[in-house]
């Protein structure tokens, strides 16, 4: 206790906010790569691959991110794999985001009109050519608004990295609060910073949705 909020505290929070952005980008890139593989695996011609990918999605979507964080950070060391907070957070977010983006993108790929698949097949394009040259370019357009929308979920979910001691925005707030004990003020500041990070992205995703002219109902994680 003691002391009041000063410039050093605010600098510490700003540093935390930068790590929140950094972790969000790591999660987006890592989860995006994983999600791409999951999306393709979910529509694979091989049954075993489809089932495997569906199992992965079901399992991850049925587990809280918090538990995945604890599992990587506390669960792996006893098995002989030591992980730093940053590694644990990055791996957990990648695994988690991969399942959700994979499902979103599978939906986008499948919503490319069936005639496009048939036409590409009629032109004797191979499966890879069909995917790369006909389906994916169109799917990317459909996928942009929901992906930007999911970015908001990613930013918010990085706050859970605080439970494994990674100093991002939420953890930075906790640390300062331990010194000053002004919880309401500090968490209000934290909330405002998160809002400032998320709201523009929310707005952008809504604008993109509106420009495509089909509002969709998205389900969001807290």
């Amino acid at each position: 206790m003691g002391g009041s909020l000063n410039v050093n505290h605010l600098a510490f929070l700003a540093n935390g906010a930068l790590w929140t952005i950094g972790l969000s980008l790591i999660a987006l890139v890592g989860g995006g790569l994983a999600g791409f593989v999951v999306a393709l695996a979910r529509i694979s011609p091989l049954r075993a691959v489809r089932i495997l990918a569906a199992g992965y999605v079901q399992l991850i979507q049925g587990t809280p991110l918090l538990v995945i964080m604890f599992l990587t950070y506390f669960g792996l060391p006893p098995l002989g794999i030591t992980v730093s907070p940053l590694t644990a957070a990055s791996v957990s977010l990648t695994v988690y985001v991969g399942a959700y983006l994979g499902e979103i993108w599978r939906g986008c790929i499948e919503s490319v009109p069936k005639q496009q698949w048939e036409a590409a097949e009629g032109l004797a394009l191979s499966r890879t050519q069909r995917m790369m040259r006909v389906i994916l370019p169109q799917a990317v357009r459909i996928a942009t608004p929901p992906t930007v929308g999911f970015m908001v979920q990613i930013i918010k979910n990085t706050s859970l990295a605080s439970v494994v001691g990674f100093v991002e925005l939420a953890r930075a707030g906790q640390i300062i609060n331990n010194a000053l004990f002004e919880p309401f003020l500090i968490y209000l500041i934290i909330a405002v910073v998160y809002f400032a990070l998320c709201y523009p992205v929310s707005r952008l995703s809504r604008r993109l949705e509106a420009s495509q002219g089909r509002p969709r109902l998205s389900v969001e994680t807290a």
């Binding site: 918010k156 979910n157 919880p183 309401f184 968490y187 809002f195």
Partner: peptide, 21 residues
């Protein structure tokens, strides 16, 4: 908008310490 653009973790802390205050 304020709920959807902030993390649940921070909301929980705010409610917890807000009620305590």
């Amino acid at each position: 908008e304020s709920i959807r653009n902030t993390p649940l973790l921070v909301q929980i802390f705010l409610v917890y310490f807000g009620l305590a205050s």
